[in-house]
Design a protein around this nucleic acid. Structure first.
Lengths: 311, 311
DNA sequence: ACGCCGTGATGCCAATTCAGCATCATCGTG
DNA sequence: CACGATGATGCTGAATTGGCATCACGGCGT
């Protein structure tokens, strides 16, 4: 299965495994080779580079600065090897591969199921790992090569990230349809704060959007709860605990069934949150990841307000 | 000198040389190895990939589709190897390297000399190749890995290109200061066409800007010459052959010495040409190339009207 | 304080890989 | 038709690599 297209020296695979294990012997075990072989290859690499790659500490091996530079090279090579393999595979007609996604929680109820379903129809042989991470961890996971694609709200621009798709979503208040505010066309802060509210914690990107609404007061009077999960906030709103703040994208099903109502919150003008698909900059995507990116783009743009696609 | 940081299999270097030579024996000669060694490594690669990389034609070796895919991988690996080596070198404090630039002709009189001078002050150990190419060939040279950085006007967006810097330059008419039009604050087409004009040929990116001015008439009445060199057009204008069309950036010296005058040409509003610095997308730049990109950015932005930097 | 265990490095030997030489079949060219 | 050049291949010696046993070292628990 893991026919790694062994076009490259074993040394760089050894190096990568040692880096991940922090131990030569452990790496050797996982690679099914003798530890002496691994040790020698590392020494040989250090000889080529003319600088130590690891600090040998009693507690384990830790990358030196040179090691970190080289590790990035290894990541580039291995990721591009994967891309090449997938392209060569596509050439033979077997559209398969493996994609690792890192997404935020707000997409698990509607967007991701749809995308996965569509991908399974089109490319039954593509397998997927999905990690639910906070907004902050997603760029990190991409940079470390732990994920191929990331989907998150309002990521700030970063040189290591490449934006593959983006769409805007308007922030609004969500509540039960029988809530007194549910019939308004739009809402402002003062009106909202006269009713119990479910507010986001700072870990959520939503916080950045909602916080300004309550600038000044540190703890809004009517904040009945501060939760770090948009799903939880949604469930609470459905049970009538109060009104929560989200974009439409997490509650499309509830809107259709009319178990929740959505009312835009305006502060001067509408408040937008940008949902984007990201990859690490500086790599070509394997065909499988590229297919996912396209599918994500389609669905996001279809749900967004004011779309844009930059490829 | 060419200690290629031999972290990688000889096979990929052999492959790359064979690809460039179109011949195994010729590649072997340049690599100072026996042809059998090269032949076998290629066969071994094809064995790993389970597809032929070259078509063996009597006239030479030509890449198959799989070969092209693999060639791209090899380019990525080799370029990233170069980056890694330069970063490791920078770690040791010897800020050296080699950068290959592909620029358009219009920059040879002012911008490039300044940039090169500045680079030689800052990094005396960086060597440079400069190729003067047409606007169309520059993206191509970057894609093929024949150049590290490209500087050109008005490149259309392309997925394989990454824009490192950009600045706008207004199109204008250039002429001797004693020309009747030299004292105008701005000009339009009709006024210009009453005097002899030196026009660009379609190879120049300028053509795209100037052509609309003369839409309708295929051959402007007063076009005394069509030249494919902005330098030549400038020299002709200096000698009073007629008025030419350029941006300021090529004639800064003449403007200072008042041997040429520049008058904006407007068509409704000002007409801008974008001068950009580009690299192949999907690669980290070596530190030497990165330093060049920064220096180019500085100088371009300093000369431009309405700057922007996206990194 | 003293074994005990696990670590990375190293000497030695076998297995594998690789390069060079000579040679062959093939094809274009004069 | 002969000549020269090409890519592939059998063979041999050299170089690289991996496995085993062993050493020196340091943390940890008794």
């Amino acid at each position: 299965m893991k026919q790694t297209l062994r076009v490259h020296n074993a040394a760089i695979h050894y190096f990568d495994m040692v880096r991940r294990c922090g131990s030569i012997r452990e790496a050797a075990r996982r690679l099914n080779v003798a530890s002496s072989a691994v040790s020698r290859q590392i020494i040989k690499l250090e000889d080529e580079i003319q600088a130590p790659l690891f600090e040998r500490l009693p507690s384990g091996l830790k990358l030196t600065t040179a090691g970190e530079i080289f590790a990035r090279h290894v990541m580039v090579v291995m990721q591009d090897t994967e891309r090449t393999r997938s392209e060569l595979g596509a050439l033979r007609g077997l559209r398969s591969g493996h994609v690792r996604l890192a997404i935020v929680e707000g997409l698990i109820s509607d967007l991701m199921p749809t995308v996965i379903e569509r991908m399974r129809e089109r490319y039954p042989n593509i397998s997927t790992d999905i990690a639910i991470l906070g907004s902050q961890q997603i760029p990190e996971a991409l940079a470390k090569g732990q994920a191929d694609l990331g989907v998150a709200f309002s990521l700030k621009r970063h040189a290591d990230l490449r934006q593959l798709a983006i769409a805007h979503f308007e922030l609004g208040a969500i509540m039960r349809p029988d809530h007194p505010l549910a019939r308004h066309a739009e809402l402002n802060l003062i009106t909202c704060s006269q009713y119990p509210m479910i507010l986001p914690t700072p870990e959520l990107s939503l916080y950045q959007l909602v916080a300004p609404l309550f600038s000044g007061q540190e703890r809004p009077t009517n904040g009945v709860a501060r939760v770090s999960s948009v799903e939880l906030a949604k469930q609470m709103a459905k049970r009538g605990v109060g009104i929560a703040f989200q974009t439409r994208i997490g509650i499309l099903e509830e809107l259709e069934k009319e178990t929740l109502a959505f009312v835009p919150v305006r502060l001067g003008g509408p408040i937008y949150s940008d949902l984007g698909v990201y990859a690490r900059n500086g790599r070509f995507l394997p065909v499988a990841a590229d297919a996912y990116a396209r599918a994500l783009n389609e669905e996001i743009v279809a749900r967004g307000q004011g779309d844009r696609r930059q490829w």
